[in-house]
Design a protein around this nucleic acid. Structure first.
Lengths: 115, 115
DNA sequence: CTATCACGTTCAACGGGTGAACAAAGCGAT
DNA sequence: ATCGCTTTGTTCACCCGTTGAACGTGATAG
């Protein structure tokens, strides 16, 4: 599953550092290698990311995952979308917290240690 | 899987209204019937909830899922635990929002409609 | 007594995630 | 050039929680 969240994180991380391998990506994003591979391919298929190789540069060999111009546009869009979603989540969370606090206040006080 | 979240929601809902069936519970908690059944049984096994029947009452038959005294204690504990977790989530979310806003601010402005 | 309804209970099927295992490609030493 | 060794991408069988249709049961109405 390629969600907005992983899409966003991938594009962001790749823009920061195109010289990164899938295992590191997986670690940093907190997802498995398999999923990383799957999602990354999806980005490539869509044309947001292009793999370039740098053999010309003697040492510092390695490939790189570069954002295409379309990839940059997409990243902007996803970021905004993601921000909005997080703002909604935030409001919802505030309400939940309010309810929870009221409920806790209604309880016979408990020692903190008992939790 | 019986998480703190469903544990909390179940105990809360059952305290509010012990005369509720598993299908309604499932709807209100936003989980499947199967999971509701599974989690409810877990609460019963632990001794937090007891099923009482009310056959004596001619009409208004039906069973009921009643919180035991231990169930009430547990509910208090879970509520506090859950509140703390949500507070942490909240802080984390604020940071994420901050980062996202900075990132959005750094973009070439986009029409809202383009998202 | 039988059909129907309202329940709780079960479990085969599904789906997403995982990471071990494999394939390919580069590097260094001989 | 050859042979390991290392790094990296790719695959896919497996795991595990979730789902909801199907089933069993017991009460109700007709």
């Amino acid at each position: 599953m390629l969600t907005d969240e992983t899409r966003y994180k991938l594009l962001k991380r790749l823009e920061e550092n195109p010289h990164i391998n899938q295992r590191e990506l997986a670690n940093e994003l907190g997802i498995s290698l398999g999923k990383t591979n799957y999602c990354l391919k999806a980005l490539i298929d869509k044309g947001w990311v292009k793999v370039g190789n740098f053999r010309q540069n003697p040492h510092k060999l390695q490939y790189a995952y570069l954002l295409t111009p379309k990839g940059l546009e997409e990243k902007a869009r996803v970021t905004l979308r993601f921000l909005k979603r997080k703002q909604q989540e935030h409001e919802q969370l505030l309400e939940e917290l309010k309810e929870l606090r009221e409920e806790v206040a209604a309880l016979k006080p408990l020692e903190e240690g008992e939790v």
